[in-house]
Amino acid sequence: MASPKALKAASREKVGKGAARAVRRDNQIPAVIYGGGEAPTPISLDFKIANQLVYAGHFLTTVFEIEVGGKTIRALPRDYQLDRVKDTVVHIDFLRLNAGQTVRVFVPAHFVNHDQSPGIKQGGVLNVVRHEVEFVVPADAIPESITVDLSGLEINDAARISGVKLPEGVRPVIRDRDFVIANIAPPIKEEATPAADAAAAPAAAPAAEAKK
């Protein structure tokens, strides 16, 4: 579990599309702190710092102590929006945390012991079904990641949630089934030869002509 990080923010008064764009023009990022039975607090963050935090990793599993208007608010990032082309941060949502609160969090899965998996040694490919798994956890003890052991997995075998050792107080949101986190897929078959494609192409073209 990571310790809470301090984050400085400025409160902003106006909300909405125009105000958010004005904030972005000032090299800031609009954000909001909501939940905890209080009214949402619109804030703005420094563009550079926000991007560094998001791209440093573990962003959605780290609790922040946000200093805004002389008050400190404990909050967990719930979501962030990226620019679709530039991949820079556009907006961040924070959830206000109360003492003893449990939250639903997507925790990243880390895979270990690739070299001890006979399936991968035979040329199989680790096919990650869930890069992140959703858990219900105490807000004070959010795990940074879960470790999935691949040792002993053959081709077509799957690593399931039951095989993962979870920290105390952490339980998966999906509890009705033993869901798959990753499996070992068979090696990729030989790609189609150029000759085969060349033979197929003329066959397709007359068919198109015939339909005219």
Partner: peptide
Amino acid sequence: RAITREMKRVGR
């Protein structure tokens, strides 16, 4: 084709 050849048909 360029991608899969460079990857030597490993990975996906």
